[in-house]
Simulated assay, not measured.
Amino acid sequence: MRHPIALLFVGFGMLLFAAGYAINNHLASSGVGDMTSSAHFKDGKFSNDEPVAENSVWKILSIMKRSIMDEKIDPIPKTAIPVKSVTSSQLENLPDEGVFTVKLGHSSILLKVNGELWLLDPVFSERASPFSFTGPKRFHAPPISLSDLPHIDRVLISHNHYDHLDKPTMKALAKKAGAYFVPLGVKSDLVKWGIDPESIHEFDWWQEKTLPAGMVAFTPSRHFSGRALTDGNTSLWGSWVLKTAYESLFFSGDSGYFSGFKQIGERFGPFDLTMIEAGAYDKDWPEIHMTPEQSVQAHLDLQGRTMIPIHNGTFNLAFHPWYEPLERVLNAADANEVVLSTPMFGEVTGPDYPANVKRWWRDVMSSTAGSDQK
């Protein structure tokens, strides 16, 4: 049975995410960060290297109509998503050499990098939404709570959408994080949320920074930005490269498929591990979110060795079944002889841990398949 009100909330969330992309309202720079010197910034807005078609009001209304009228198959799990709890002592006891990865949910990743703890796109809130009472709701709790997190050395943000930049999470991290690496234009929000301006470092595409734990570079993606109806593309979006003496990693953020993956692979590859978006794709927005098959091709373009699919299993942000991205990316990986690691949320992967080949979602699928919209 469909619940029209619930679907309307989903449609409203999609409208909010798309509106900043669609409305031609050029805002002046906030003056925080040197956006005007960026080659990708013109007339108050950032743009992609490979242009994407602007949404019309009619296109947005069409998506709204689909969200209300279309029957959705298995949009949420019917039984609990498996989650392994992570403790502060467990993180502290991981070796201080090498890179260890913990998938927290959606695109939120916790890394231990040569003894430092890093968070990528951390979202700990119950909803990926500007509102606490409506919007896409988590399928599962984070493996570790914000209050239990130890000191975080660095927080990296790919772009400012609500499922990647979460205000309550960032306000809580202001008390326990050392440095913030963000795209151009994002600093002003963090400052408003109480984060020390001196701890925030803004990046343009291809900008690199050398650190004691290694090197990071902010690299392009094919996407957009915006948190309201009037701020579309007034901040940058992108992906992250991390290189240490032990390992090389790539984190995609959100992106449609584009030639930039091959450019990043040629410049910074090969990568030991890629964490690539595989989820929230749809025929109505093919240029800004990849299909799972394109995600595997992006991994190949990047010259990746092992791939962890992210941006799935936590929020309902599109029209496909919740498990479909994982099934499709697995089939594409097998067809292309790609090593696919699919750790459970909270499971540690790293140098001493082989790629996890347990397909945890299938146990949940067996209870979910054929369920009605909740």
Results as ranks from 00 to 15, higher is better:
Gly304Ile: 04
Lys262Ala: 14
Thr342His: 01
Thr342Val: 11
Leu330Gly: 06
His289Ala: 14
Phe258Glu: 07
Ser239Ala: 15
Leu242Lys: 01
Val338Phe: 02
Asp282His: 14
Ile288Lys: 00
Glu266Lys: 15
Thr244Lys: 07
Gly232His: 07
Gly238Ile: 06
His223Ala: 13
Ala245Met: 00
Phe224Thr: 02
Phe261Gln: 04
Ile310Pro: 08
Thr274Leu: 02
Leu317Ala: 05
Asp231Trp: 12
Tyr246Glu: 09
Tyr246Ile: 00
Gly226Cys: 10
Tyr257Ala: 09
Ala318Val: 04
Leu317Gln: 12
Pro220Lys: 04
Asp301Cys: 03
Ser239His: 07
Arg305Cys: 00
Thr244His: 06
Ile308Trp: 03
Phe261Ile: 05
Glu327Arg: 14
His223Asn: 12
Thr342Cys: 11
Trp240Pro: 10
Gly269Leu: 06
Glu293Arg: 14
Phe345Ser: 13
Gln297Thr: 11
Leu273Tyr: 04
Asn316Leu: 06
Thr291Phe: 14
Phe251Arg: 03
Arg222Tyr: 00
Leu326Arg: 13
Phe315Cys: 05
Ser259Asp: 14
Phe319Leu: 11
Thr219Ala: 15
Met344Cys: 10
Arg267Lys: 15
Ser221Thr: 10
Phe271Gly: 02
Ala332Glu: 13
Val338Ser: 02
Phe271Ala: 07
Arg227Thr: 14
Leu330Asp: 13
Ser248His: 03
Gln294Pro: 07
Gly253Arg: 12
Gly279Ser: 08
Pro309Asn: 09
Val339Lys: 08
Pro343Cys: 05
Glu337Tyr: 07
Thr244Cys: 05
Ala298Met: 07
Ala217Gln: 03
Gly265Cys: 04
Ala280Ser: 15
Ser221Val: 05
Ser248Val: 00
Leu326Pro: 10
Thr230Tyr: 14
Gly269Val: 04
Gly253Leu: 08
Ile288Ser: 12
Glu327Tyr: 12
Gln263Lys: 15
Leu300Gly: 00
